[in-house]
Design a protein around this nucleic acid. Structure first.
Length: 706
DNA sequence: CCTAGTCGGATGACAAAA
DNA sequence: TTTTGTCATCCGACTAGG
């Protein structure tokens, strides 16, 4: 089974990924510096239904943990330490021999970080990725040897070429060949690590296969546009980037084939190119920088040269009438960041590299996206990588002001496409700063009619009556998932009643602060109040009473989490001419159906919508709206994690593929208003982004077979 | 058990001041 | 150039009452 490009992009974006191939390559776990991140359960989700056995051919072998990608030595080391720390510790601890992914072409099969499973003497702690029985392989019981050798058996080739000097029985090799591996691959694997540990061998064979597939495709060479993800501020990193000392990122050099040996054989120029490539810069850029600066130039100078070149390149590709649109501002910022980083790291070059996941993506100012209704198309040009071009078209949304590095990471997963950051205050009367990554064209967008009111008074003229002259708000702030307490409005009323008219500046300041924070409007003399759910619906572009039914709290929550329909419709409007017969949509994290309402308001027929939404209340809302307005097929799924490859493939067969994959994954752990668990993309809910990515990848795979 | 109400900081961007 | 201040933000733990 070939690994698709997205998976490799993923390997570049996170530290390490665990894919469960026994369940159609489902993403099981993401390992990051902060910890192992299981991708199995969504809070509040029911247990996933039993999944059908994989039908893809050749059927993947059932194993507890099938593939580990770590894009760097540092990442590999992190994973190893995490596994050591983890209560969910594998029976066999991986010895991670790390070669960054992007060196695949240069180093052939060593392109991916491989994880060699070595037996651990501590067998008591079974590695339980899931509670069900899949942790125990069933399809290859005869191949397993649970009494595998202990940690001291660092595998070495015997004099006869076999690991441990022991030739495997022919039946063993045939067993693996029967599983779909080539004999050559099996022999090589056994020579490499022996055959005592069936798990380890399977891992290695799967890794060989994956690498073989990819190198055959010819992707992920050093000229690949996917830069490597390396995280800042880690000792592991410095260990790694001080490559001359320990190219293995601190891993014991027990196997005698470390990258250090490899590096030592290289010429000075090659060495520098390699260093730059290892930092994530394209090889040709590194080469050019050396040509420009000379082979003797310090690495820091070369890094700056590459940075400047890249920034200039970006400037050429994406320019804007607006200075904030990833133009000169970004260039300047890149240069500034590069300088700052070098300074921070004591002038050393080890830590300088292109924007990594730890760096923030500059937000455009004004936040108007590529263009706005009634506005000329900004001179935005972007070139999508080949694998990102639709169909399927995809549209991903999340909060713009996410923690540092989040959008870099999201973008890296989604073909390095620059997010289109838009504040919905340019489309309606309330702000909503969001980033959208999509592969839709953006010429000839159309506004939906009637256009949304742009100011508070346009939307709610009756509030004019009580609006004090010293409240200068023309628009509202972001509509959130909860509203102010009654006590707060009472306090405000009391403060105003007990002061002069107009109130003194201190009172004005206090009142304005609370009004802005909670989107309060003036409903009487000295009386402010929160917007009601119907007003939320109106401002967000939903039909009246769209969410009516559940309690107010639920309504606020679902509305506060939804799309701003006019904004999304503006982006999706290009689909109307492209799909005159309607679209089939895979809608992830549907919520109350902002995307669907947008398509409907654009007059785009939805032949079919497969909607995935965990909240029963939201599902009910969508179903109610659908039954009133639509004639197509609606299939609602509760848990995104039950949407396996096989289910996706069957939907693809049934509906002739998907025209649009749309969704905004949970932002709970990204939003600034989360005081408790703003854990970033790795947070419990926000990590479901990786499900979006995984499903999009599955859709592409399934559609490529059509 | 469910619903509604109340209350409580952190983060990052930006601008102004030092 | 660095520090400080201001602003905005798809929230969650806890409690009370039904």
């Amino acid at each position: 089974m070939p690994l698709s490009s997205n998976l490799h992009a993923a390997a570049g974006a996170a530290d390490c990924f665990f894919f469960d191939r026994s369940r159609s390559c489902r993403l099981v776990c993401i390992a990051q510096r902060d910890g192992l991140l299981p991708c199995q359960k969504q809070r509040g989700a029911e247990e996933p239904a039993p999944l059908p056995s994989p039908t893809r051919s050749p059927p993947p072998p059932t194993i507890p943990l099938s593939l580990v990608f770590a894009p760097s030595a540092a990442a590999a080391a992190v994973v190893r330490s995490l596994l050591l720390r983890s209560r969910r510790r594998p029976r066999a601890l991986p010895r991670i021999r790390s070669v960054p992914l992007f060196t695949a072409e240069r180093e052939g099969q060593r392109g991916s970080t491989m994880v060699d499973w070595l037996s651990d003497s501590d067998d008591s702690d079974k590695f339980e990725w899931e509670s069900d029985a899949e942790a125990e392989p069933s399809s290859a019981p005869a191949l397993r040897n649970l009494d595998a050798a202990g940690p001291s058996t660092l595998v070495r080739q015997g004099s006869n070429g076999w690991a441990n000097g022991e030739a495997p029985p022919n039946s063993l090799i045939e067993g693996y060949v029967g599983m779909g591996f080539t004999e050559e691959m099996v022999v090589k694997g056994i020579k490499e690590i022996g055959h005592n540990d069936a798990n380890a061998l399977l891992e290695l064979l799967l890794t060989y296969q994956a690498i073989g597939d990819d190198t055959a495709v010819g992707n992920y060479s050093t000229s690949c546009s996917i830069p490597q993800s390396m995280e800042d501020d880690s000792d592991l990193d410095s260990e790694y980037w001080d490559g001359d000392d320990d190219a293995d990122g601190g891993e014991p050099k027990s196997d005698g084939c470390s990258d250090e040996d490899f590096l030592q054989e290289m010429s000075e120029k090659d060495k520098k190119i390699n260093s730059l490539v290892a930092m994530g810069y394209p090889e040709d850029e590194a080469n050019k920088a050396i040509t420009r600066c000379g082979v003797d130039a310090p690495l820091s100078v070369l890094v700056d040269s590459v940075c400047a070149s890249q920034a200039a390149g970006e400037y050429e590709v994406i320019t804007g009438r607006c200075s904030g649109l990833f133009g000169g501002r970004k260039k300047a910022r890149l240069m500034e960041e590069s300088k700052k980083k070098r300074k921070r790291c004591g002038g050393g070059a080890q830590r300088s590299r292109p924007p990594s996941d730890d760096e923030s993506m500059p937000l455009p100012n004004p936040m108007v996206g590529f263009n706005l209704p009634g506005d000329m198309l900004r001179t935005v040009r972007r070139t999508l990588p080949k694998q990102a071009i639709g169909p399927p078209y995809f549209y991903y949304e999340n909060v713009a002001l996410a923690p540092k590095g989040t959008w870099n990471k999201i973008s890296r997963f989604l073909h390095e496409i620059e997010p289109e950051f838009v504040d919905s205050k340019y489309m309606c009367a309330a702000a909503r700063k969001r980033g959208y990554i999509h592969n839709l064209p953006y010429e000839n967008r159309k506004d939906i009619l009637p256009p949304a009111p742009k100011t508070i008074f346009e939307a709610f003229p009756h509030y004019k009556k009580w609006w004090p002259s010293w409240d200068h708000r023309k628009q509202l702030n972001c509509l959130q998932t909860s509203i102010s307490s009654a006590k707060l409005t009472e306090r405000i009323q009391h403060a105003l009643a007990s002061s002069s008219n107009p109130p003194p500046p201190s009172v004005q300041k206090y009142v304005m602060k609370e009004c802005k924070k909670w989107n309060l409007v003036w409903v009487g003399k000295n009386k402010v109040a929160a917007l009601d759910p119907a007003e939320y619906e109106y401002l967000l572009g939903f039909p009246r009473d769209h969410t009516r039914g559940p309690g107010k709290t639920e309504r606020y929550k679902s509305l506060g989490n939804s799309f701003q329909v006019d904004t999304v419709a503006w982006h999706l409007s290009v689909l109307k001419d492209m799909f005159p017969n309607g679209v089939s949509v895979l809608s992830l994290f549907t919520g109350i159906g902002g995307g669907e309402v947008a398509l409907h308001r654009l007059g785009i027929h939805m032949r079919a919508v497969i909607s995935v939404e965990i909240s029963e209340v939201s599902r009910r809302i969508l179903k109610g709206w659908w039954d009133q307005t639509q004639t197509g097929t609606l299939i609602e799924i509760a848990d995104v994690q039950t949407l396996t490859y096989d289910r996706i493939a069957s939907f693809v067969d049934r509906f002739g593929g998907f025209d649009l994959v749309i969704g905004g994954s949970p932002c709970n752990n990204l939003a600034g208003s989360n005081r408790h668990h703003r854990d970033g993309l790795e947070g419990e809910q926000s990590a479901l982004f990786f499900e979006y990515f995984r499903i999009l990848d599955d859709v592409k795979s399934a559609m490529s077979r059509m």
